[in-house]
């Protein structure tokens, strides 16, 4: 059964999607109480993709993100695990993190932690999972 499409939803899905993605990136770097929130950021990005799905169906999601969900999940998980292992190279414990302060052009001094790649990994795991769910149980067949 094909539902009739809602004009309002169709038109607003686009702008809202981008705002939501920006917000998810903000959450990724900031967390709900500093530093870093890969999981919550991923959830917001996932919700944005679900909005795309509700407005335009599985094809629309596929057009938006062309990366295979498994690849995104796998690379995200690999990034997270490697971040955990990295401290071994400098003789620290598994998952140990350090504070980091970088001077960037335009942004000035940015303080972050070495756990950031871990959060980015988690972010992609969550988004990849949402994509996999949308494709598996959201596709038409």
């Amino acid at each position: 059964m094909k539902l009739s499409r809602s004009l309002i939803l169709d038109m607003s899905a686009g702008p809202v999607f981008h705002v939501a993605l920006l917000f998810s990136a903000f959450l990724l770097f900031r967390g709900h109480n500093a530093p870093g929130g890969g999981f919550i950021g991923g959830l917001v990005a996932g919700a944005a993709l679900v909005l795309r799905y509700v407005a335009g169906g599985a094809d629309e999601v596929h057009r938006t993100v062309r990366v295979a969900p498994e690849l995104m999940l796998g690379l995200g998980l690999a990034l997270a695990v490697l971040t955990g292992v990295a401290p071994w190279l400098v003789g620290d414990q598994f998952l140990e993190s350090a504070k980091l302060s970088v001077d960037l052009p335009l942004l000035g001094t940015v303080k972050t932690t070495t756990a950031l790649p871990f959060d980015i990994g988690v972010y992609f795991v969550v988004v990849g999972l949402v994509l996999a769910v949308l494709r598996t149980i959201g596709g038409e067949e």
Partner: peptide
């Protein structure tokens, strides 16, 4: 360093294996 390895190795491999899906 050896202690977490039996957990870390399969987990990392699971990630790579997912990326090699298909």
């Amino acid at each position: 360093v050896l202690v977490p390895l039996p957990v870390v190795l399969p987990l990392l491999a699971a990630a790579l294996s997912l990326a090699a899906y298909g």
